[in-house]
C-alpha cells in the first residue's frame, strides 16, 4: 500500500491505496464521486476526463499514486453554490447531450480547451474534443454549446458591458449562434 494525499473538488483526502489503483476508481469507489463515469476503460472515449493540476487527463489512464500531492477537479466541483458554469448551462440549453454519458468528460475537455483558447472556431473545438466520443449527438450541438459558453465567458470577462448583438470589438460577428432562451437561465 502507498500513502497518497490529494485535493479533489476542494476537499483534502489522505488514503492508503494499492499502486495499481486507477485514479478513476479512487474517485468513484473510494471517494464516492460517481459524477465521473467509466466509459470505454481503454483511454479512448474520454468520458472519465478530469482536471489534474490544471490539465485535462483521462482518469482511467492515470494511477492514483501518480496524482499524489495533486489537485483534481471533477465535473462535480465546477458549480459553486448550485450555480452552473457557462459551459454547464450551455450544454443544457444547446441540448448538447442525449444519454449524457459522455457529458462530464466533454465538459472537462471543453473547459481545458477554453482555458487555452477562449475564442475557438468550430474547427478548433472539434480538434480540442477529439479525445472525447459521443455516440448520440453527432457533435453538432456539443460544438454549439462550447461556442455559446465561450461567448458567455468572454462577455463576463469583458471590461465594459456591451449591448447584446454588438459583435466583437474587432468587428467580427459573434461566434455563438443566437439561441432563444440563452439569457433566460441565470
Amino acid at each position: 500500500m502507498t500513502h497518497i494525499s490529494m485535493t479533489v473538488d476542494g476537499t483534502r483526502y489522505e488514503d492508503e491505496v494499492e499502486p495499481r489503483l486507477l485514479l478513476i476508481h479512487y474517485l468513484r469507489d473510494h471517494l464516492g464521486l460517481t459524477g465521473t463515469p467509466v466509459g470505454c476503460d481503454t483511454s479512448n472515449c474520454g468520458a472519465c476526463t478530469v482536471e489534474l493540476d490544471g490539465d485535462s487527463v483521462k482518469s482511467c489512464n492515470v494511477l492514483a499514486v501518480q496524482a499524489d500531492g495533486g489537485e483534481v477537479t471533477t465535473v462535480q466541483g465546477l458549480a459553486s453554490d448550485g450555480a452552473w458554469t457557462p459551459l454547464q448551462t450551455a450544454f443544457h440549453e444547446q441540448h448538447a447531450l442525449q444519454c449524457g454519458y459522455c457529458t462530464p468528460g466533454m465538459i472537462m475537455a471543453a473547459r481545458d480547451l477554453l482555458g487555452e483558447n477562449p475564442d475557438p472556431t468550430p474547427e478548433e473545438i472539434r480538434h480540442g474534443l477529439e479525445g472525447n466520443l459521443c455516440r448520440c449527438t453527432g457533435y453538432q450541438n456539443i460544438v454549439r454549446a462550447v461556442l455559446a459558453a465561450a461567448a458567455e465567458e468572454r462577455r463576463r470577462r469583458a471590461p465594459a458591458p456591451r449591448p447584446a448583438g454588438a459583435g466583437r470589438p474587432d468587428g467580427r460577428p459573434e461566434g455563438a449562434p443566437a439561441t432563444a432562451g440563452q439569457e433566460a437561465r441565470t
Partner: peptide, 9 residues
C-alpha cells in the same frame, strides 16, 4: 499524437 488529454500526460 492522440488527443489533448493524452498529450498532457
Amino acid at each position: 499524437v492522440a488527443d489533448p488529454a493524452v498529450r498532457h500526460r
